Amino acid sequence: MSAPCYAAITLGSNSFNMMVAKTVSHHPQIIAKYKRKVRLAEGIEADGLLNSSVMTRGIDCLAMFAEMLKKEGVSADNVEVIATATLRKISNADDFCQQALTVLPHPIRIISGIEEADLIYQGMAATTEGRGRRLVIDIGGASTEFIIGDGNKVLLKTSLTMGCVTFNHSFFNQFPFQSSDFDHVRQHVESVLGEYQQQLSRLSWHSVVGASGSVQSVVELLCARGESRMITLHVLQQLKQEILAQNSVSMLDIKGLKPERAPTFAAGVAILLALFELLNIETLQLSGGALREGILHQLAQRCG
């Protein structure tokens, strides 16, 4: 009898993702991936409501996921749907969840930032080689999680309100972009970090691991250029200059940048640059996994 398939669906502020896996040798083996740039956080209005057009965009994606679950033969009992920062924040989250049930008949679990940080660390630890104390940074669309851990022991975890979609709306909403836009991001990141800046630095770490699309977009670019996958301050400073030199908001002249990454690329680089400077980070490597992989490992224990 073959192992059952199970699926982890994450409703992030930037992307909606679905991973389908089955257990092989006690570990999840991914057999299918689906992703759509929904950019949910773009739809948050001043009154705290998610606007109807972006809500529809999200529901349409979930309808596609439902079709793919049928295609992959995933049992209804083996699906976990997790939502993060935007659904934590909006005042009409219940409306979204009710509409979602009409196309994807699985309840959405809106997790706290601390729960998200826990799952991110589990997913990183299960998929990323390395020893010693690590700082994990996951820059999402509307929140960023910071975790310091050593092996399976978590020493600090927090979730703060900074993300590439919300920062894109706040700081990079007029083109051409200016050096002052990056300065304003740094000031805001410093303000949001607050006391955590000292706490993180005091604990220290042996290495830094980054997750999510902002880090992924830089690593993909470096790979396309045949350069080292390691992100450094020099790399980010160079990318800042390339962003400022662009003649079009599409940023087509930035070699190695995928078009679907372009809309939030400047904000992601600005956040990374600010964190490198404020936390004195020397190098950052891409995590092998994060939130989705953390959920998959929980599902593997339940379904495997």
Results as ranks from 00 to 15, higher is better:
59 I>A: 08
121 Y>W: 15
140 G>H: 02
298 Q>G: 10
75 S>I: 09
131 R>Y: 03
58 G>M: 11
222 L>M: 12
231 I>D: 03
190 E>G: 08
3 A>E: 10
277 E>S: 04
42 E>C: 01
292 R>G: 08
197 Q>H: 04
146 F>E: 06
284 L>G: 05
171 F>L: 07
135 L>P: 05
17 N>Q: 12
17 N>T: 00
253 D>I: 00
172 F>Q: 03
219 V>F: 12
290 A>W: 14
182 F>G: 04
130 G>I: 06
199 Q>D: 12
193 L>H: 01
291 L>W: 14
302 R>Q: 13
20 V>K: 06
35 K>C: 02
222 L>C: 03
249 V>E: 06
253 D>V: 06
132 G>L: 09
3 A>M: 14
180 S>Q: 14
275 L>R: 00
102 T>D: 00
304 G>A: 02
90 I>K: 03
67 E>I: 10
88 R>P: 13
108 I>W: 09
91 S>E: 09
106 H>I: 04
95 D>S: 13
53 S>E: 14
163 G>Q: 07
44 I>G: 05
173 N>M: 07
206 H>F: 10
104 L>D: 08
133 R>T: 03
245 A>E: 04
47 D>K: 02
148 I>W: 11
254 I>M: 06
40 L>G: 05
175 F>R: 07
113 G>V: 12
286 L>A: 09
270 A>W: 02
226 G>H: 02
121 Y>F: 15
47 D>R: 08
151 G>K: 09
89 K>G: 00
10 T>E: 15
48 G>A: 09
265 F>S: 02
272 L>A: 01
31 I>L: 13
255 K>R: 15
1 M>H: 01
4 P>A: 06
13 S>D: 09
186 R>S: 10
166 T>L: 06
92 N>V: 10
82 I>W: 11
143 S>P: 14
28 P>L: 05
231 I>V: 13
97 C>L: 11
43 G>I: 00
99 Q>L: 15
69 L>A: 04
247 N>C: 01
55 M>C: 13
143 S>Q: 08
225 R>S: 05
127 T>M: 15
116 E>S: 07
284 L>Y: 06
144 T>M: 04
184 H>L: 14
123 G>W: 15
254 I>K: 10
276 F>M: 03
284 L>V: 13
285 Q>G: 14
6 Y>W: 07
234 H>Q: 15
164 C>M: 10
83 A>L: 00
62 L>Y: 12
181 D>F: 01
47 D>M: 09
179 S>T: 12
246 Q>E: 08
100 A>D: 07
264 T>G: 06
53 S>K: 11
49 L>K: 12
42 E>P: 08
157 K>G: 02
295 I>S: 01
177 F>Q: 01
54 V>W: 08
261 R>W: 06
158 T>L: 03
258 K>R: 11
233 L>W: 04
64 M>S: 15
213 G>H: 05
137 I>V: 11
182 F>R: 08
95 D>K: 11
10 T>N: 11
63 A>R: 14
214 S>Y: 04
139 I>A: 01
58 G>N: 07
107 P>L: 12
20 V>Q: 05
106 H>M: 00
